[in-house]
């Protein structure tokens, strides 16, 4: 099937882990009204906020190259949490899309 996402503005955003928290809240996931996780909050002082490029309303397509398409909420959240926790990398690469 063709992807409507591919027609949207996407951006690759690198978030350096320069704080103890990532500091985003996400909603949605497969089998919900919001099929891809959407950023609903960015907390001041978190790594995401410090990065300055993530915005509320963006949907997250990939995390370190892992597609979130078809992942339910809990699994998508786990993938993001693992990406932040791992010491193998000092950053997380998010592929995000601007909607509307």
């Amino acid at each position: 099937t063709s992807s409507p996402i591919s027609a949207l503005n996407t951006a690759l955003v690198r978030v350096v882990k320069n704080s103890n928290t990532l500091g985003i809240a996400i909603e949605g996931g497969a089998n919900t009204r919001q099929p891809l996780p959407r950023i609903v909050t960015i907390q001041k002082g978190g790594s995401a906020h410090n990065c300055g490029q993530l915005k509320v309303g963006q949907v997250i397509l990939e995390v370190n190259g892992i597609s979130l398409r078809g992942q339910e909420h809990e699994e998508a959240a786990r993938i993001i949490a693992e990406a932040f926790k791992t010491k193998e990398k000092d950053h997380i690469d998010f592929l995000v899309a601007e909607l509307g």
Binding site: I24, I26, E27, G29, T32, T41, A77
Partner: peptide
């Protein structure tokens, strides 16, 4: 058979 009309609401997780 009942057809589900609405999807479940999204959860929100703070990361």
């Amino acid at each position: 058979r009942e057809k589900r009309l609405t999807l479940p609401p999204s959860e929100i997780t703070l990361l």
